[in-house]
Write a protein that binds this DNA or RNA. Sequence first.
DNA 1: CAATTTTTTTGAACAGGTTCAAAAAATGCT
DNA 2: AGCATTTTTTGAACCTGTTCAAAAAAATTG
Lengths: 248, 248
Amino acid sequence: MKISKKSTTTKTAKGEQTKALILNTALEMLHERGYEQTTMRAIAEKAGVSLGNAYHYFGSKDHLIQAFYHRTHEDHLRASLPALQKESSLKARLLSVMRLKIETLEPYHEFAGVLFQTAADPHSPLNPFAHAAAPVRRDSIKLFEGLVAESKARIPDDLRTELPYLLWLYHMGIILFWIHDPSRKRARTYRLIDQTVDLLDKLISLASNPLMRPVRKKALRLVAELRDDLTPGSSDAVSDEETESEDQ
Amino acid sequence: MKISKKSTTTKTAKGEQTKALILNTALEMLHERGYEQTTMRAIAEKAGVSLGNAYHYFGSKDHLIQAFYHRTHEDHLRASLPALQKESSLKARLLSVMRLKIETLEPYHEFAGVLFQTAADPHSPLNPFAHAAAPVRRDSIKLFEGLVAESKARIPDDLRTELPYLLWLYHMGIILFWIHDPSRKRARTYRLIDQTVDLLDKLISLASNPLMRPVRKKALRLVAELRDDLTPGSSDAVSDEETESEDQ
DNA sequence: CAATTTTTTTGAACAGGTTCAAAAAATGCT
DNA sequence: AGCATTTTTTGAACCTGTTCAAAAAAATTG
C-alpha cells in the first residue's frame, strides 16, 4: 500500500559484491569467535567497510544470521543425499539424517544457544515458525518428505501426509536437546537419537494399526490445525501479501 | 574454593528495602510498558535510585525478570487450588489448571515473547531447564503432582511417576503456542487446550493398557533419562555443589 | 565514642547494536 | 558530456546494558 521509497533495496553489481563480502566475513567470524565476539563493528572492520554500510545491507545482526540457517541446511542436505539413497527403511533413513544433522551443526554448538535464543522470539525473523523463515523451513520439511515418500512401509495416508512435518518438529526438538547437551562429543544426543528413532518407528507402526484410527484421526486433525496456526504461509496460495515484511 | 569477598550480598534491613522497591517498580513497569521500554535506567529513575544501585541488587536485567516467574506461578497456584478441590477427574483438573494458567499469564502476553526468548538461552538463568530456575520449576511440577496424585484413575505406577513431569512439559508447550497465538482473546490457545487435554486423557488410557507395557516402559525410561539430563539437580541427593552458580 | 570494616549508593565510563543525515560513487537519461 | 536520480558509503551520534572505582552511610568492634 505504501510504496514511498524503493527502500534502498534495489541492487547493483557493486552492491551485491559488498553484501556478499560482508556476509562471508560475518559467517567466518561467527564460526571462529562465536556470537558474542562477532560484533557488527568487528565484521565491518574485517570486511573493510564502514559500520553503517553493514547495516545498509543487513538491517540487523539477526538478519546476518539467517544466512546461517541456509548454509547449515544446505550442508546437511548435501550430506544426507547419499545416505537417503543407500538406506531403504524409514528407520534407517531417519537415523542417518538425524545423525548427519548433528554432525553438520557441531562446529557451531557454542553459539547455537544464542542463535536459538533469538530464534525463540515470535517477532524475530529468525523464529523457525515465523514467516520470514518460511523458505528454509519449507526446504527443511522437504527433506523429510523425501525421507517418508519413498518408504515402502504401510503407513495410512492421513499419517503419511503429516509425517514430514511431525518429523521436522521432532528434529527441532533434538536440536534443542543438543544445544543443552554438555556431554563429551555430544554422546547423549546421539544416544537420544538412537532411542527416539527406535521409539518413533514403533509408534508409527502402532499408530498405523486400524484399531488406532479414531485416536489417530483426532490427533492428526489437531496437528494439521496447529501447523496452519504456527506457520502462516504453508497453505500455499493464501494471502501472500506481506512478502516484504519488516520488523520494527 | 575462592571466598575472596563476601560478594556484596550480605543483606541488611536497608538493603532489603531498596531491593524490594526496585523489584516492585520493575514488575510494574514491565507490565505497563513491556520489556523493551522497561530500561534499567527507567526503572532506577522511577524507583528513585541510581542505575548502579539497581545493578548492585540485580546483576542483570534477566535477574530482575526471574521474579516474574515466581509471581505468575504463585498467582496461578492460588487460582488453581479451588478448582483442584472441586474437580475430581484427571481430565477436568488438567483442563482447569491449563485454562487458569493462560488466564494468569494473559496480562503479560505482549512481552512474554521476549521473556521466552531470553529463557531459551541455555546459559541464561531464566532458562526453565537450567539450574537457577530449579526452585520455580520444582514448584511448578509440584502443582502437577498434586493434580495427578489424588486421581483415582487406574494408571500404572511407572507412568504415574513420570506423569507430572510430562504434564509440565506439555504445559510449557501450550505456553509456547500461546506466545505465538495472534487470535482475538487467544481463542485458539483455549481451543488447543480443550483438544489436547481430551487427547491426553485418551492417550493416558491407551498407555495404561497392559498390551502397551513394553513400549511404555521404553518410552518412560527415555523420559526419565531426558529429565535428568536436562534438569540437573532434580536427582535430589547428587552433586549439589554449585549451589551458588554465577554466570559470566 | 572513635576506628574499622562492611554495605549501600553514586556517577562516570565503556561496549555494542542501531539510526540517520549527508557525502561519494554509480547509474540513467537526453 | 552534462545533469538528475539512485545507490553506496561514511561517520557521527544515540540508546541501553553493564562495569567499576570511589564516596557516603551503616554496622561492628574495641
